[in-house]
Amino acid sequence: MPQISQIIDTYASQFFWLLIVFGLIYFTIGRGMLPKIEANMDARDRKIADDLAAAERARAEADNLEDGGSAQIAEARVAAQAKANEAKAKAAKDAEARLAVADAEIGAKLAAAEADLAKASAKAMTSIESVAAEAAADIVAKVSGAKVSAAQAATAVKVVLSNG
């Protein structure tokens, strides 16, 4: 086995070259290149974590906005409902008032019309009385030949009419 039979002749060379090579590996690769590669990996991990955190934040913000939006919509709906109710009540009151005014107007008109009618009928009545008196005077003149004055006829007709 050369590893053991040659050990006395070769140990110095083995140690020497191994220490040189391993020293180079340790100092240039292990302490030189490795930290840079690890720093790069750490930077990448940090970047990924940061990006994820930013995305998470943006999502939370969007969720928040959505919640605020729906609250606003509900609020607006309530306000609209209140306004609509108010308008409805106002309209009803308005209509009532106008109805009352119109009612009063119509009442007044009706009363006026009734008064007119009464006046007209009274007027008609008097004209009927005068016509009846004239007719009565004519009838009396034709039947008896007696001349009845207009005043007499009128009183007579008035009596009859008021009786009748």
């Binding site: 002749d9 070769t10 060379s13 083995q14 020497f16 070259w17 090579v21 590996i25």
Partner: peptide
């Protein structure tokens, strides 16, 4: 006074270093 000859073993150590680098 020490024999530190460059041997085939040393050569392969250097090869390892080169490959690793």
């Amino acid at each position: 006074g020490y024999d530190v000859s460059f041997t085939n073993s040393s050569l392969f150590m250097v090869l390892v270093l080169g490959a690793l680098w």
